[in-house]
Amino acid sequence: MGFEIPKIRYTGKIKKVTLGYGERQVKIGGEGCYPFYTFEGDMPNPPRVAFEVWDCEPDDWQEWAIEPFRDVLHDPVLWAKKCIDVYGAELIALNLKSADPNGMNRDVEDVVEVVKKVAGAIDCPLIVWGTSNDDKDAVLLRRVAEVCEGKNIALGPLSEKNYKQIGAMAIGYSQVVMASTPIDVNLAKQLNILLGNLGVQDEKILIDPTSGSLGYGLEYTYSVMERDRMAALTQEDTKLQYPIICNVAQEVWKTKETRLTEQEEPRLGNEVRRSILMESVTAMSLLIAGADIVIMRHPEGVRLIKEMIGELTAE
């Protein structure tokens, strides 16, 4: 009798979510198996990488992070275009850094203006990442939902505190929301239930499980995502059957390991190579845990990850 490889019995499926509009819209989700377990099930839409773009000129970036974008960092529109035209971006994640009350605290309308411009200038799907300040986001992201009408953008993070205000607008303007909870399966589920009760459609929800960088809590995110997927795919937990998005860039590039130069700490080796690897290894791990979208900063890291996705999803 021949040996038969045991297979996992999947009883659930991740919901399909479409981002963007027109020709360049992107579909994610739909998988009926664990990440890249294509020998056991279907993974109709490969995971995607989104390029990070800021709404203002960063003032504390590492030289080697600035380098690929030096000519465009002063203008979010040019920056986004360069990601698409030069580096082949399929998705743009606009980070509204300047609105942060603990930073520049720029006025909502000024920030909304930038969002509008970027959204108008690109035709690939847009992700808008707020400040993670519940009150500011409640005002800001509502306006973002409004001005991006018809673009089917993803906006977030939505928390337990502001999901109602933002969620209601997202429904009104038919945008996708990113439901964000602090690394916990139950909390993630609860927010999804609340969004569902509010009237947000299933195909309009992404889970942001809160990401940690390699060396800074990645393992927590990893195991929570694993459990999200187990519950979703093998335990029919419908309230976890949503695609997952991880904001890798903002976590990785603030770590000490991406900041110290080789000169300052010879044992850590070349800083450029090291930083890119930090970002790609984090992204790779999260993809293997179940991420459907990873947001990344460095074009070289993005290239590595796309290659990996390609290889793992090849027939």
């Binding site: 916990d184 139950n186 909390l187 589920k189 609860q190 239930i193 029919e236 937990d237 309230k239």
Partner: peptide
């Protein structure tokens, strides 16, 4: 406990 910190429960089933 975490799963039950919701009304009625996080596990709707």
């Amino acid at each position: 406990f975490m799963a039950a910190m919701f009304l009625p429960h996080t596990d709707l089933r």
